[in-house]
Deep mutational scan, measured.
Amino acid sequence: NQASVVANTLIPINTALTLVMMRSEVVTPVGIPAEDIPRLVSMTVNRAVPLGTTLMPDMVKGYA
């Protein structure tokens, strides 16, 4: 099973992502692959992402 990116904290809308905000976890449904974490750093989220939420491609500006 592939690990996905999961919010390690509440990420407010329009926040630039940092490494400490994200962790990898095997979850269903599958979200952004964990190997993309380095690429996500400094990208911003377009909605509030609660703790434990899987990051989906449409949640990160410029990812999809």
Rank of each mutant, 00 (worst) to 15 (best):
P12C: 06
L10P: 15
V27F: 02
P57V: 06
V45Y: 00
V5E: 00
L10I: 15
Y63E: 03
T44M: 11
A7H: 01
T15G: 05
E35T: 11
P29I: 06
V60K: 01
L17W: 01
I32T: 01
E35H: 12
E25F: 04
E25C: 05
A3E: 14
V30K: 05
N14Q: 10
I37G: 04
G62W: 06
K61R: 14
L17T: 00
S24R: 05
L51A: 11
V26Q: 11
L19W: 10
E35D: 11
M56W: 06
R39Q: 07
I37V: 08
L10W: 12
T28F: 09
T28P: 00
M59Y: 14
M59F: 07
E35V: 12
G52R: 05
K61M: 13
G62D: 13
R47I: 11
P38D: 08
Y63W: 12
I32G: 00
Y63G: 04
T18A: 11
V5A: 14
E25K: 05
L55H: 00
V45S: 11
E35G: 10
L17H: 00
A7L: 03
R39W: 08
E35S: 10
L40M: 05
R39N: 05
R23L: 05
V49T: 04
S24Y: 14
V60S: 01
V5W: 02
L19D: 10
T53Q: 10
R47A: 14
A16W: 06
L19N: 13
D58H: 14
T28D: 15
I37N: 00
V26F: 08
V41Y: 05
A34S: 14
V41T: 11
M22E: 02
P50N: 10
A48T: 15
S42E: 08
Y63N: 03
V20S: 10
T53R: 13
M59S: 04
T18V: 08
T44P: 08
M43K: 12
R23S: 08
A16H: 15
V30Q: 13
M43F: 11
G31V: 01
V49A: 08
I11A: 01
V60C: 02
G62A: 10
P33D: 08
M21N: 14
T15R: 05
V49R: 03
T18D: 10
G52A: 10
S4G: 06
I13K: 09
V5D: 02
I13C: 10
E25V: 04
P12I: 04
T18F: 03
V30T: 10
Y63Q: 05
E25T: 09
V30L: 09
V45R: 00
D36M: 12
A16L: 07
P50I: 07
D36P: 00
V60Y: 00
L19F: 08
N8K: 12
S24A: 13
E35L: 09
V41N: 03
A7P: 02
A3D: 14
T15D: 03
V30M: 13
I32R: 00
T54M: 04
N1A: 15
M56V: 13
S42N: 14
V60N: 02
G31M: 02
E25D: 13
M43G: 04
A7G: 03
A64H: 15
I13E: 15
T18M: 09
G31R: 02
A34F: 06
T18E: 11
G62N: 12
P57H: 11
I37L: 15
V49L: 12
L51M: 14
R39T: 10
A64N: 15
I32Q: 00
P12L: 11
A34N: 07
P12A: 09
T54H: 03
V41D: 03
M21R: 03
R47G: 06
G31T: 01
R23E: 04
P57E: 09
V27C: 05
V41P: 02
R39G: 06
D58E: 12
V60W: 01
T44S: 13
G62H: 08
L51H: 14
Q2F: 12
I32N: 01
N8R: 09
Q2E: 15
T15M: 09
N8C: 05
A34G: 12
E35C: 13
L10V: 13
P33H: 07
T9M: 13
P29S: 07
M22H: 00
A7N: 00
S4C: 03
D58G: 08
G52Q: 03
G62Y: 07
K61G: 09
P38Y: 06
D58R: 06
S4T: 04
V5K: 02
T18K: 06
Q2C: 10
I11R: 00
N14C: 14
S42A: 13
E35P: 07
R39C: 14
N46Q: 09
